[in-house]
Design a protein around this nucleic acid. Structure first.
Length: 514
DNA sequence: AAAAAAG
């Protein structure tokens, strides 16, 4: 049987791999590492979860042992579609490069240029980037790509979906033709094949089967729900509470707004919960993901930014709050559980209008998913709407912009302020079955408002177009914003606040640069 | 019906 020692990797790399507890390479690693070490181009066709990342990180580390980086001239470049994946690759370099003295620069958006500039100035051996930020650095003229020896394009098909191909072409033009190119994609549609043909010279093609274990180790169930968000939230809560072996879970929504709404709802119901979507500020994204990995957060509500490639080894459950519109996304989402041979549970909430998407999913995976109990035809009457019992609220909305009103509509549905007797809100917080229903630790202390803010930021962006630095809520001197204080009051029935209370005039909510 | 990525 092949071991890592047979692949031609350097001692430094081998000892780091051994320390990490690995001895046997995965098929993509066994297939890609030897030719990569011989400076061949690679066409790797592999899904995430096949050990793909190490299949380029390990040979790159070995190759980088010769030579030294010069200022502003990176020696290798890796492109990733999302910031989280880029950060994950950087972590891999830390882990397997612990015996090396390499300067690894992570160039992603949403964070300050300063530290990135400093790393570039010192001379980066490895540049790990999302396309936008890399181009931004290039345009500032602080980066010379003429020294790049190894160019990695990861998740090419996803980059195509995301419209990054023109950016990648621009970047590729800046890199010398003599480079070595490692190109990875989970699938090979014609456009990707064309791209590969243009970028690669006589590549070694390494194709590995989909990890069949993913679906085998995952128990999948579908759960019927009415279409209203508050009903879906109630179904979800019941489902979560019914799990006896829920260690942690990722809950996927189709829209960023619903991520924010569901996050707030679950938080209000006392769950240990975090959120992750692309309009959150990067600090929160990083903190939420880290808090989830560290088991400080039990539930992570996420958009499809978290669907692919994120490497969290022991997620016990995946819940699809929404049926994904694209069937492949279903496979990616549920693939966040049942990893590394563990068992996993995947539940998908299905409403009547979802049936065609469900059909597409079942067709793709080649099997019918079992209903947890009953099916759509057995749904009772929808919950009574309580819109009418919701007077008072309109008064509170007076003087606030439309954007705020729009946001609060979702909030009032199942997250009413103060004490509520609505059925959706009757469960006292302390009956929650999930671990640690307490405040979700320091991580969320600093970040949870920013989930809310991100959403408002989106609105602000949309409405104000041009005032990009607008802070959606006025900050207090401790750096928190007033919205957070209001949020706190949701949890107690204290006296009506003085000052603006909930009636902060719209113009004050937009504290832009005047 | 979406999300992601530069600011």
């Amino acid at each position: 049987m092949t071991t890592f020692a047979d692949l031609g990797l350097s001692q430094k790399v081998l000892s780091a791999v051994t320390d990490a507890g690995y001895s046997t390479p995965t098929p993509i690693q066994a297939g890609a590492i030897p030719p990569a070490l011989q400076r061949r181009d690679i066409l790797g066709i592999a899904q995430t979860g096949t050990g793909k990342t190490a299949s380029f990180v390990l040979p790159m580390l070995t190759l980088l042992e010769k030579g030294r980086a010069r200022a502003r001239m990176p020696r290798t470049l890796i492109l990733e579609p999302t910031r989280e994946l880029a950060a994950q690759v950087a972590e891999n370099f830390e882990k397997y490069g612990k015996n090396h003295k390499l300067n690894v620069a992570l160039l992603i958006g949403g964070v300050s240029f300063d530290e990135q500039d400093r790393k570039l100035e010192r001379g980066a051996d490895v540049l790990i980037c999302t396309p936008g930020r890399l181009l931004d650095h290039c345009e500032r003229g602080k980066l010379l790509m003429t020294g790049v020896e190894v160019f990695v394009i990861d998740e090419a098909d996803r980059m195509l979906d995301m419209g990054f191909i023109p950016d990648i072409e621009r970047i590729a033009k800046m890199i010398p033709f003599t480079r070595q190119t490692l190109f990875f994609s989970a699938t090979m549609p014609p456009e990707i094949q064309k791209l590969a043909d243009r970028f690669l010279q006589n590549p070694e093609r390494v194709e590995v089967a989909k990890p069949s274990s993913t679906t085998k180790t995952i128990t999948q169930r579908i759960v019927a729900s009415h279409n209203k968000d508050y009903e879906k939230r109630a179904v979800l809560r019941d489902l979560i509470k019914a799990q006896d072996e829920l260690k942690n879970a990722i809950i996927f929504c189709n829209r960023k707004k619903d991520v924010a709404d569901l996050f707030r709802s679950l938080e209000r119901h006392g769950f240990s919960v975090g959120a992750l979507h692309g309009d959150m500020d990067q600090r929160s994204r990083t903190a939420m993901l880290q808090g989830f990995k560290d088991n400080q957060i039990t539930l992570l509500v996420a958009s499809d930014v978290a669907a692919r490639g994120l490497d969290i080894p022991d997620v016990s459950h995946v819940f699809n709050f929404d049926v994904p519109i694209h069937a492949e996304d279903y496979v990616h989402r549920i693939g966040r559980t049942g990893r590394a041979g563990r068992s996993g549970q995947a539940f998908t909430l299905v409403t009547k209008s979802d049936s065609k998407y469900l059909d597409a999913i079942e067709k793709l995976i080649g099997e019918k998913i079992e209903w947890l109990s009953g099916d759509l035809s057995e749904l009772g009457a929808p919950m009574e709407s309580f819109e009418s019992g919701d007077k008072g609220r309109r008064g509170r909305d007076k003087g606030r912009g439309d954007k705020d009103r729009g946001r609060d509509r979702g909030r009032d549905r199942d997250g009413r302020r103060g004490s509520s007797s609505h059925s959706d809100d009757t469960k006292p917080v302390d009956t929650v079955a999930v671990s640690q229903p307490k405040e979700p630790v320091a991580v969320t202390e600093t970040t949870r408002t920013e989930v809310v803010n991100a959403e408002a930021k989106q609105d602000t962006r949309r409405q104000q177009n041009g005032n990009r630095n607008a802070r959606p809520y006025p900050a207090n001197d401790d750096g928190r914003d007033q919205r957070r204080q209001r949020h706190h009051r949701d949890h107690d029935d204290g006296p009506t606040p003085v000052g603006f209370g909930d009636d902060i005039p719209a113009f004050m909510l937009i504290a832009g640069k005047a």
